[in-house]
């Protein structure tokens, strides 16, 4: 039997993209996604963690602020600090910011409206564990669905993100141009996704897991999950090999 990579998809009360994330991994070989309830204390040796989108705890207080104290988050923070790959999508991005794993915060969209439609994002850094299968400045079409995706951080934090290549995705026009009109929520520096200093924690507002097969209208999100598996397979050389 083969040893498969294990990816934990954490379900909080109010998560609604956990099954989409699960399926995005199910479409790939060599990986076994598993749902983990937020009350669990241990991650139990998984290779990567996904915090999916949704409205954990009804977005009460601030989006992500209560989920951040769920029992499993202590293990997620430890896992991330030890270098384990963590992907936070939409509400997952908000949770990562609240947990202090990523800098900044996500404010109410500048137009005040909940935006649910496809956007274009440009790959700014293909050198992360999540983007190695993309070309520099490749433009992806992926959906967004959020009311609070307006990325905000202090000027010195934005300068650090810019200087260190930690801005991974920016909103853009279909031909890859940055413009205010193509920025759906007012995010500083057109930011759609960032990584932490070590590069192993990615937070993004768009939903790559909802763009992984033609029937969904776009497959542009699939290489993100494939990139992550490449990274995990390289880090764990025995995974995927045949053992008896």
């Amino acid at each position: 039997m083969s040893v498969k990579l294990r990816v934990a998809v954490v379900t909080f009360p109010g998560s609604n993209c956990d099954h989409d994330c699960y399926r995005a991994f199910r479409l790939l070989d060599g990986v076994e996604p598993e749902f983990r309830w937020h009350r669990e204390a241990e991650l139990d040796g998984v290779d990567a963690v996904v915090l999916p989108g949704g409205f954990s705890y009804g977005d009460y207080l601030r989006a992500g602020s209560i989920a951040r104290f769920s029992p499993i988050m202590e293990s997620v923070v430890r896992f991330a600090r030890e270098g384990g790959p963590v992907l936070g999508i939409c509400n997952g991005f908000q949770i990562l910011c609240e947990a202090g794993l990523l800098p900044g915060a996500l404010l109410r969209n500048n137009g005040l409206r909940f935006r649910s439609h496809d956007v274009h994002i440009r790959v700014e850094n293909p050198g992360t564990p999540f983007t190695s299968r993309y070309e520099p400045h490749q433009v992806l079409r992926v959906p967004i669905a959020h009311g609070e995706g307006n990325y905000h951080a202090a000027p010195e934090v934005l300068a650090e993100l810019e200087g260190a290549g930690r801005i991974v995705f920016r909103y853009c026009t279909p031909d890859g141009t940055l413009s205010e009109a193509a920025n759906p929520n007012g995010s500083a520096h057109h930011i759609a996704g960032i990584v932490n200093e070590a590069g192993n924690v990615l937070g993004m507002m768009p939903h790559p897991e909802r763009a992984v097969e033609p029937v969904l209208g776009s497959s542009d999100g699939a290489p993100l999950f494939e990139s992550l598996l490449d990274h995990l397979a390289a880090a764990a050389p025995h995974a995927g090999e045949l053992t008896t």
């Binding site: 207080l61 601030r62 602020s65 209560i66 104290f69 910011c97 609240e98 800098p103 900044g104 915060a105 404010l107 905000h152 951080a153 202090a154």
Partner: peptide
């Protein structure tokens, strides 16, 4: 810890 986000 919880009630306010010091960033914003």
């Amino acid at each position: 810890k919880l009630l306010a986000n010091p960033v914003t």
